[in-house]
């Protein structure tokens, strides 16, 4: 069979999938970009007209609610990624150091990462319940007066962060454990013979070797934290006030509560650009780390 025939066959095989993906991602996205340059509103008597960059200018320069949602999201992403990586590393290295029971313990620990975020959110609702929840009960037994958690502007975002960390630390532990298990033993042995141990072993041998694999986990987590929606919806609806409103949730509110698809489209396009830039920068950073 000739190369041309093979190429045609291969094209035929990808066409349905690529066509469908185009229809559900690129086409709506283009539509959304177009809408973002208009004043389209559902149920508004005003006729739709072009308004150029107005939506983008308003968002980035005037809309403080958008900017504080952006800031909150950045906090959530960085805080979540750092905490979950550190805790995940702790869990993974503990599991790596035991001989028996590793698989059983790992599967028990992993349960949070395979359940629906709605269920995780519901668990959070019960656990963070200020008056009748187990968390404040335990704190009270220790003589600490627990905060109102979900009902307080100071702690609502923290509760979301804690729920996410509870759900996804196991995921990072799983990945870091995979990285630790695939460490080339000859390099580790050679380093040990050269006198590396403790911190120097970790910093100059283990860390550079687990960065590529761990990096993938961190990237996936960062991207997902950036899109945090389900937990906000179930736990706080963005409140009290707007104190726990993330970018995605605010976009949802603009689009589906205020029926303002043009403004929401501009917002979601900004998010897409931000997440792409951040992911690219992170990948470049990982690549640089690897060469050390």
């Amino acid at each position: 069979m000739s190369g041309v025939e093979e190429r045609n066959f291969a094209r035929l095989m990808v066409t349905p999938a690529v066509g469908l993906l185009f229809l559900v991602t690129i086409a709506p996205l283009l539509f959304s970009v177009v809408v973002s340059f208009t004043n389209l509103q559902f149920g508004s008597p005003q006729p739709m007209r072009w308004n150029g960059l107005d939506n983008y200018v308003n968002l980035t320069l005037r809309d403080t609610r958008f900017l504080s949602a952006l800031w909150r999201t950045i906090l959530l992403v960085t805080g979540g990624v750092i905490t979950q990586t550190v805790l995940g590393f702790a869990v993974a290295s503990l599991l790596f150091r035991i001989r028996r029971g590793r698989t059983v313990l790992l599967s028990a620990i992993l349960i949070p990462s395979v359940i629906s975020q709605v269920v995780a959110g519901w668990q959070g609702r019960m656990i963070f319940n200020a008056s009748y929840g187990p968390l404040n009960d335990m704190l009270a037994r220790l003589g600490i007066k627990g905060p109102a958690w979900l009902a307080s502007q100071q702690t609502a975002l923290t509760a979301i962060f804690l729920t996410d960390t509870w759900q996804w630390t196991p995921f990072l532990a799983l990945i870091i454990l995979a990285a630790l298990q695939s460490l080339p033993q000859d390099i580790v042995e050679a380093a040990r013979l050269d006198g590396a141990y403790g911190w120097s072993m970790f910093r100059f041998v283990t860390l550079p070797l687990i960065v590529p694999v761990t990096g993938i986990g961190i990237l996936l987590r960062g991207v997902d934290l950036f899109k945090t929606f389900d937990l906000v919806y179930i736990l706080t609806q963005g409140g009290p006030g707007n104190s726990s409103e993330t970018l995605t949730f605010f976009t949802y509110v603009q689009g589906f509560k205020f029926f303002n698809p043009s403004y929401a489209s501009a917002m979601s396009f900004i998010q897409l650009v931000l997440v792409t830039i951040a992911a690219k920068m992170f990948l470049a950073f990982i690549r640089r780390q690897r060469s050390f």
Partner: peptide
Amino acid sequence: WILSIRMFPPIATILPLFVI
């Protein structure tokens, strides 16, 4: 490209898909 769809904020496709 197929991999990068994983990074899409769902809201970016949900909104226009809803209109359509």
